[in-house]
Amino acid sequence: MDLRKTKPLHLVTPVWNRGTRGIRGLSRAVAPEGSQKKGRSLLQFLADRFYDVQALREYLLRKQVLKVHQKNRPFTYIKERFGPHAAGAYFILKQGGAVKFQGKEWIRSDARGHFSLDFLKFQAVPVEAVDASGCAINYQGLDSLLALKELQSLWLQRCPHVDDWCLGRLHPLANSLQELSLAGCPRISERGLASLHHLQNLRRLDISDLPAVSNPGLTRILVEEMLPSCQVLGADWAQGLPSGPEEQSRDTASPIPA
């Protein structure tokens, strides 16, 4: 096996985290291409030769995706019984985030994922802040958040499944949303940030540390121009500017894809 000598076989995915395996696996998948190692594992070798192994791996890949979908199913029963605010809060707490009802304390789930269901009694009290940092929330799961019409602060830090499509969907919150944090989301690019111009009441926007944004400094300036009344946190303006002549030529090389 000369394969073994040249490149280490990795049977196990390098990033391994018990609770959020599926999430990590997928978020790794969207990392820029440069970070992907060009290694061949034994499994790939087998999958190239046996249809069964290939089919099994396809099935497992599908299952990973399905798991995220399952986590993002709306709780229609709670919505019908207790109203959209309780349903949204329940959804976020189930995901491992935290919510704050108007005039109340933050509610957070404990280390084992348990939380008290007292908030179901609040009924008419709206949710004013949601901290969904690190949650597996995706496009479908946003449904529950968009029903929270008086949401003022939304933290979506390091959410592996929040992408440009999700940002294009935040416009129903335009009237209330004042604070939005997208820091560290691996799938958000400048294309999605452009659609935030619907949120004209925004006062604070955190767009720091977005790996998929090609020119963080320029993007920040453009976002500031687009949302004049909003304080934008993020990359320093000098970051992402060409530092040498070679980079400069690359930037201006081909703006058109076709």
Binding site: H10, L11, V12, T13, G25, R28, A29, Q36, K37, K38, G39, R40, S41, L43, Q44, F45, D48, R49, Y51, L56, R57, L60, L61
Partner: peptide, 23 residues
């Protein structure tokens, strides 16, 4: 086994070169 069968998404486009049932 499940760990082992995790699809490693880390390979290049040319990775299929060794396969015989493809192409």
């Amino acid at each position: 086994l499940r760990r082992a069968l995790q699809p490693g998404l880390s390979r290049g486009v040319l990775g299929r070169g060794l396969g015989t049932h493809r192409g």
